[in-house]
Design a protein around this nucleic acid. Structure first.
Length: 312
DNA sequence: CGCATTTGACCTGA
DNA sequence: TCAGGTCAAATGCG
């Protein structure tokens, strides 16, 4: 971020902050209600709050959109910042556009995605985002020491989930892995939600847990991913920072808050920006929140032009 | 036997 | 033209 937001953006920025603060308040109220679901709040107020929260986010996004935040996307893809998280490129649907009739083996024929709408994350070890991934390719990259690994959601076939990610080791000594998320999970991966709920609920607190810093031996690079499913979140999540990382990024993101909500605005923002560089050029925010025992990721999806309730 | 990974071929965008 | 992204046959593993 360079410190120079255009002046006319200053107001916009204030508005954005204002909206975010408001949204946070709504979320806090909602959290309160969720803790007493049987109270006299009933479900209607909760839904009402949800609507307000969504509206707040929408407004924020549109503000950001209008200001065309020049702060982000100037980062090259090689940094840990990248363009928007939500990936609408999937409309082209890589696999389905195989057309070339004269294919040997019937291979190839896909539409290569453009490098847009991705969310990049750099971590000390391959991440587990709670989703099930299946490796579908590996490629040596020019000028890169390590090959890049390509993963798609395991539910691509059965649920048509279009989420993919690329994982590449970028450093050896302090091990560093760059994970690029693309696409949007449309699958219902109940595993993630249930784990998160189970793990976090008892604590009753909130906190953003990201990377598991448990040093893994990358004997084969992505032990966790290889299993292609579930790295469970160890139940001793308290003593270790939560082991799975719960991203703040497109879809793979789950916001595991475990810090008092009052902290949400400031400190965690730093944490987030340190690990993730998901850019939200507005339209592409897709975050999942863990509030109390509720996984927002299962409730909302942030779509291109707003949000919609995905039900719960 | 079913499913995941490996790996070389193929295709596309720059 | 080439680097990168994806496909799918072959292979391995549980």
């Amino acid at each position: 971020m360079d410190s120079s937001w255009p002046e006319n953006l200053a107001t916009n920025r204030e508005n954005v902050i204002d909206e975010l603060v408001r949204g946070r308040e709504y979320a806090t109220q909602l959290q309160f209600i969720l803790h007493e679901p049987l109270g006299d709040h009933g479900t209607v107020p909760a839904e009402d709050l949800i609507v307000k929260i969504l509206r707040s986010f929408t407004k924020t996004l549109s503000l950001l959109d209008s200001s065309d935040s020049g702060e982000v996307s100037q980062n090259p893809a090689t940094t840990n910042v990248s363009s928007p998280c939500f990936d609408d490129r999937r409309s082209e649907n890589s696999g389905e556009s195989r057309k070339s009739p004269a294919l040997k083996d019937g291979r190839g024929g896909y539409k290569r995605r453009k490098t847009s709408n991705t969310c990049t994350k750099v971590t000390p070890n391959p991440v587990d985002d709670g989703h099930a991934w299946r490796k579908y390719g590996q490629k040596e990259i020019l000028n890169a020491k390590y090959p890049r690994n390509y993963f798609r959601c395991t539910h691509k076939i059965d649920q048509g989930c279009q989420a993919t990610k690329q994982v590449q080791r970028i450093e050896e000594d302090p091990p560093k892995f760059r994970t690029i998320y693309m696409g949007h999970h449309t699958c219902k991966d109940t595993r993630k939600a249930s784990h998160l709920i189970l793990d976090s609920t008892p604590r009753g607190s909130y906190f953003i847990g990201f990377e598991s810093n448990i040093p893994t031996k990358h004997d084969h690079l992505f032990p966790s991913i290889k299993q292609e499913h579930r790295e469970e979140i160890p139940s001793d999540i308290t003593q270790n920072h939560s082991s799975s990382d719960y991203l703040f990024s497109s879809d793979l993101t789950t916001f595991d808050t475990s810090v008092p909500t009052t902290m949400l605005g400031s400190d965690q923002g730093d944490v987030i920006s340190g690990l993730y560089s998901c850019t939200t050029s507005s339209r592409s925010l897709d975050m999942g929140f863990m509030v109390g025992s509720m996984d927002f990721d299962n409730m909302f999806h942030f779509e291109d032009d707003g949000f919609f309730l995905a039900q719960s």
